[in-house]
């Protein structure tokens, strides 16, 4: 019995169950081929020009902890070939059901095996052992999708590197978690090409900072 076959069956079963229990209140894409293409181009734009803000037109999910933008990223990128890790403060039976119903993604408790991780600035823990990829396969790392306090192109963090002509300011919030996230991104340079790529969401807004970006504090010297 092939693993994939089993998964497909499971997904179908889950779809039925989800339909019956009404988790479809988490909205899907109304036109999957064209909506996901449009969203992907925005995500690609965000990742290739770090720190730029995109506003995603996605139906708003019932829980606003994750936000519409990140839910749109989930719907665009996740499927039964991906593993998703969910932080405790976002985790709920409804989200799990919606995730499997709409994408078929496998939910994992092991952050190191996750292709994507869903978390918030409050649940970000620098100690969590997400996959960083290896020097031979740096692409095999976890992409973090983080709900942050705010998204704006003003201080305190300055970004530079690929995708940025000179520098770009990014503000994701003042909380300890937000600072820790930017510190973690700054630390990427030391382990490059291994590292963490992050997609930030705040409501319908989205920005991304990949591992290639140099992050400095506007009010301090370079962090690394």
């Amino acid at each position: 019995m092939g693993q994939r076959h089993r998964e497909q069956r499971e997904m179908e079963t889950r779809e039925r169950v989800a339909g019956e229990t009404g988790s479809a209140a988490w909205p899907g894409l109304s036109d999957p081929a064209h909506d996901s293409q449009r969203l992907f181009r925005q995500i690609l734009g965000a990742m290739s020009e770090p720190g730029t803000l995109e506003t995603l037109a996605v139906p708003v999910p019932p829980s606003d902890a994750l936000g519409a933008a990140l839910w749109g990223v989930v719907l665009t990128l996740c499927d039964l070939e991906t593993r998703v890790w969910i932080a405790a403060d976002l985790d709920s039976p409804a989200l799990r059901q919606a995730l499997t119903f709409h994408t078929g993604a496998r939910i994992t408790d092991d952050p190191e095996s996750a292709d994507f991780a869903l978390l918030t600035h409050e649940s970000f823990d620098p100690q969590t052992s997400f996959a960083l990829g290896s020097d031979t396969y740096p692409d095999r790392g976890t992409t973090l999708m983080v709900a942050v306090e705010r998204l704006a192109n003003v201080g305190p963090s300055m970004l530079s590197g690929p995708g940025i002509e000179t520098t770009r300011a990014l503000d994701i919030g003042d909380t300890a978690g937000c600072r820790a996230l930017m510190d973690r991104l700054a630390a990427n340079r030391a382990s490059f090409p291994q590292g963490l790529d992050m997609i930030f969401g705040c409501g319908a807004r989205l920005a991304a900072v990949p591992r290639s970006t140099r992050v400095t504090r506007a009010d301090a010297k370079e962090v690394n």
């Binding site: 996901s36 290739s48 990128l77 070939e81 991906t82 292709d115 692409d139 790529d197 990949p210």
Partner: peptide
Amino acid sequence: EQTKRMIRRALLKAVAIPGY
């Protein structure tokens, strides 16, 4: 769509690690 998603995920990693 599944093939496109696979390629799209790979593209994001490609952009994150320029030249790899």
